[in-house]
């Protein structure tokens, strides 16, 4: 049975991108016709190992899968929420299961900034600087009510009322502090965003130069 290899743009292209429709991975689709279409059982070396040997797809899709499954967070805790973030990273909750264990100490090696804790005016400058040192693509998770809205420090004279005043945020995880399960759920949501390419940093880049210096910057 000789079937022409599909070219890109074919209806059987397993690569729905752009954020619409579910992601279908072909060997899980359960459609044997689809498999046969790829020459599955006629492989010259008989190389049928339960998986497709050749998957016609877009490099972007593969890159997104890789990105989503090895998001390395920046090791940067601001206050109380950081303890729960550490608890999420260690044995009991073990965020390593989702490819997120190596908390990088350098922003140059990090993909996601988990803002864990209260952001003060004095820390705003350094944190924006960290964010800008991270290579793109990058994502930001606001952990705790302090970073989502100011939380219990809503009336304080020295607290930034929500981290989205100084940088784009992809996922908000409320709670004071959020339970580790809450943070893990937030990271699952972030995986979806990454796969669907819906990160906020793009709009952030489009907006042009931002303010990088603050009243309380380090001197």
């Amino acid at each position: 049975m000789a079937v022409d290899r599909p070219t890109t743009g074919n209806a059987t292209d397993p690569m729905p991108t752009g954020g619409h429709g579910p992601i279908v991975i072909p060997d899980q689709a359960g459609d044997s016709d689809l498999l046969r279409e790829f020459g599955m059982d006629e492989h010259p070396q008989g190389g049928f190992h339960g998986l497709l040997e050749v998957i016609p797809t877009k490099a972007d899709y593969i890159l997104d899968l890789i990105r989503a499954n090895s998001l390395w967070p920046l090791l940067s805790g601001l206050s109380c929420c950081a303890i729960e973030m550490m608890s999420t990273a260690t044995s009991v909750n073990d965020i390593d299961r989702f490819g997120m264990f190596p908390f990088r100490a350098s922003p140059r090696q990090a993909d996601v900034l988990i803002v864990a804790g209260t952001l003060t005016t004095k820390m705003a400058g350094p944190l924006v600087r960290l964010w800008e040192q991270m290579p793109e693509p990058k994502w930001c998770v606001a952990m705790g009510t302090c970073t989502t809205s100011g939380g219990r420090f809503k009336r304080s004279y020295s607290v930034v009322q929500g981290v989205d005043r100084v940088m784009p945020v992809d996922v908000y995880v409320p709670g004071c502090p959020p339970r580790p399960e809450g943070l893990i759920y937030g990271m699952m949501k972030l995986h979806e965003l990454v796969k669907e390419r819906r990160g906020q940093w793009r709009t952030y880049v489009d907006r042009g130069p931002q303010r990088t210096r603050w009243e309380g910057d380090v001197r």
């Binding site: 601001l78 206050s79 109380c80 303890i83 804790g117 209260t118 003060t120 004095k122 820390m123 350094p126 219990r152 420090f153 009336r155 304080s156 004279y157 020295s158 607290v159």
Partner: peptide
């Protein structure tokens, strides 16, 4: 001062019961 949140001032503007909530995130 990178984590100065003004907890004392907030406590002075809160009722006595609420103060016990505000002091929680001090030494976490």
């Amino acid at each position: 001062g990178y984590l100065h949140r003004g907890i004392e001032k907030l406590c002075e503007n809160a009722t006595y019961t609420t103060v016990l909530t505000y002091v929680d995130p001090m030494d976490y």
